[in-house]
């Protein structure tokens, strides 16, 4: 019996870190703290995600599979369809009779409990950094200043990143201006630059608990 948590992007471990901060139990078979991260598989880009999902489905010992991908600009529905296509090829008997909602998607079929969460909230466009930004406390001066500055930057001719990447620039700017500048996202969670206990994370946490069948 094994679990796998496939997350799109290089900051995959931040989600496990949020669970650790919330003092959740790790999935069965994984110890606390560092082992909590052992079941996280980061995959950058949709083709790596596809490969990771295929491999997970080809391992019958994996009983709980959680997948987190970014909605990006195509939107969550498009992403969800893409994932369904991958399952269609690899495990066509998986029914997908439930819908994707703001609570995420989860369904159990035979010996596989599957959960899908499309960042940031299964409804809007966006990506992990949008979700993470919702964990920044209200009226945070550094975050406000970071957003203002980035907005000003986007008006300049030398601004290199596209509009869709703006939130990423904001979050990393926010991290660069903290007491310990430039911490990686997971460590920043530990340092409380993001509030793991924010109610904005509740739906994700519930989805996680259901997908990996955790008690409490």
């Amino acid at each position: 019996m094994a679990q796998l948590f496939i997350v799109e992007g290089k900051d995959a471990f931040v989600l496990a870190q949020i669970c650790i901060e919330r003092k959740m139990n790790p999935p069965k078979g994984y110890g606390h703290k560092s082992k909590f991260k052992d079941f996280v598989l980061k995959a950058e880009g949709i083709s790596k995600i596809e490969l990771a999902i295929q491999e997970a489905l080809r391992k019958p010992e994996i009983t709980n599979l959680g997948i987190v991908v970014d909605a990006n600009s195509n939107g969550p529905k498009a992403r969800f369809e893409r994932l369904k296509q991958i399952f269609e090829k690899e495990l066509p008997e998986f029914p997908f009779s439930k819908e994707l909602s703001s609570e995420g998607f989860y369904q159990k079929h035979k010996n596989l409990q599957l959960g899908i969460w499309i960042m940031p909230d299964n409804i809007r466009e966006g990506y992990l950094e949008h979700f993470i930004s919702s964990l920044i406390p209200e009226k945070n001066a550094i975050w406000d200043f970071a957003k203002t500055t980035i907005n000003e930057l986007t008006q300049k001719p030398f601004c290199d990143f596209s509009e869709s990447k703006e939130q990423k620039a904001c979050i990393h700017t926010y991290l660069a201006w903290q007491k310990s500048p430039g911490l990686p996202m997971g460590t920043a969670i530990k340092a409380n630059y993001f509030d793991s206990n924010s109610p904005n994370a509740d739906k994700f946490i519930s989805w996680f608990q259901r997908t990996f069948e955790l008690e409490g």
Partner: peptide
């Protein structure tokens, strides 16, 4: 090669 790159135990 691709699968080993993923660092998933094969």
């Amino acid at each position: 090669e691709e699968t080993l790159d993923l660092e998933l135990e094969i």
